Computed example of a mutant assay.
Amino acid sequence: MAHKASAAVPVKGSKLMVIGGASLVGSATVDEMLARGAEQVIIFDNLSFGGQPNIAHLEGNPKVKVVQGDILKLHQLLAATEGVDAIVHLAAYMTLNFDRDPWGGIDVNVRGVQNVLEACRSNKVKKLVFSSSNAVYGYGPGVKGDLVEGVPFHSEGAPPAAILYGASKIMGEQLCRDAFRKHGQDYVVLRFSTVYGERQHYRAANALYIVETHDAIKRGERPKVIGDGSETKHFVYVGDLARACCMAIEAPSTDVAVNTSGPEPITTLQLVNLVAELSGRPDLQAELVEPDPTKVRLTSGGAFEIVHKAAKDAIGWEPQVTMREGLGRLLAWRDAEAKRNA
């Protein structure tokens, strides 16, 4: 991990950009930047995943500029990044989208990152925060124990789309390292664990356990758990990640990749039953079902924990929101949205 004074960019008074800013993490990060006194925040997003409602509350804010653009079109990135001090790059295909469109996933997750780095070099952007994933450790039976930075990649026994996603994030990280070595481009990689929180969507394979469980309970049905429910999941609350993105910009650290995970892991069975309890229906306990071979579901193999100690050392970050508290916020938001749209 490198440290240098020039790698620290204050959020307050700076011109910042969030690529994929209309996403779950993106919209929360924009909110956090504004709360910390950013002079201007540019949301760069192609809006292909219907993110407009996530940023509707920012309409008319003089400090927010929305640019509908595509990271695969370098000229658009070059124009949008002029005068920008730091960028948080979140735009990516996740596993479910990779399963449907591998070509698109490779383009966005690899070529798109290289385009962002080229725009940073050309316009002298001081710092890039790149959102990676704990998928860089792989999936399947080999993933167990403490997952710390430096654990090797495991692919045996996992769906191809999950491995493609993880491999694409490894490539993104290495492109950042390459840009640092060749051009001195300062960067911090944040390896997100599964994100959840207000403005939750249906595109994240593991977060589906939360939203599909809540949907089933609302219909008065027992939620389903695939397998025996002993699989480990490690979630992180979206507000904690928004803080991590801002702290990574402000930290003197550069040329480093760190885990950003929630306080503790949880099994699928514990998660589903917790959602039932927080929904006021603890009687609707999970029903165990056999896996559907036609659906992409991520299995972790053995019990694991994504250790976030290095993030504390590198950027001063640690998670604050427990699973119970974060789930309560998410479910309250979903109930309010359902009422509003009724």
Rank of each mutant, 00 (worst) to 15 (best):
T268E: 01
T268A: 02
T268F: 00
T268G: 00
T268V: 12
T268I: 03
T268L: 06
L269S: 07
Q270E: 15
Q270W: 13
L271T: 10
L271I: 09
V272L: 09
V272T: 08
V272W: 06
V272H: 04
V272S: 06
N273A: 06
N273R: 09
N273W: 09
L274D: 00
V275I: 03
A276G: 00
A276C: 00
A276V: 00
A276F: 00
A276R: 00
E277I: 01
E277Y: 01
E277H: 07
L278N: 04
S279M: 12
S279P: 04
S279T: 08
R281E: 09
R281Y: 02
R281W: 04
P282W: 07
P282I: 09
P282A: 10
D283Q: 10
L284I: 02
L284V: 03
Q285A: 13
Q285R: 15
Q285M: 11
Q285P: 03
Q285T: 15
E287Q: 15
E287Y: 14
E287A: 09
E287D: 14
L288M: 07
L288E: 01
V289L: 05
V289Q: 02
V289S: 03
E290V: 03
E290G: 07
P291V: 12
P291E: 12
D292Y: 11
D292T: 12
D292L: 12
P293N: 02
P293Q: 01
T294C: 12
T294F: 13
T294R: 15
T294W: 11
K295P: 03
V296M: 10
R297F: 14
R297D: 09
L298H: 06
L298Q: 10
L298P: 01
L298N: 08
L298A: 05
L298R: 07
L298F: 05
L298K: 04
T299L: 12
S300L: 05
G302Y: 09
G302E: 08
G302K: 10
F304W: 02
F304Q: 01
E305L: 01
I306G: 06
I306Q: 04
I306T: 14
I306Y: 05
V307E: 00
H308S: 15
H308G: 14
H308P: 05
H308E: 05
H308M: 04
A310V: 03
A310R: 13
K312R: 14
K312Q: 12
A314N: 13
I315H: 10
I315S: 06
I315P: 07
I315C: 11
I315L: 11
G316C: 07
G316P: 10
G316N: 09
G316A: 06
W317C: 06
E318S: 15
E318L: 11
P319W: 08
P319G: 08
Q320I: 10
Q320D: 13
Q320E: 15
Q320G: 14
Q320A: 15
Q320T: 14
V321Y: 14
V321F: 15
M323V: 12
R324M: 07
E325T: 15
E325P: 14
E325G: 12
G326S: 11
G326V: 14
L327D: 05
L327Q: 06
L327W: 04
L327K: 05
L327N: 09
R329F: 00
R329N: 11
L330N: 02
L330F: 09
L331G: 03
L331S: 01
A332F: 01
A332K: 13
A332I: 04
A332V: 02
W333D: 11
W333K: 06
W333L: 05
W333P: 04
W333F: 11
W333G: 08
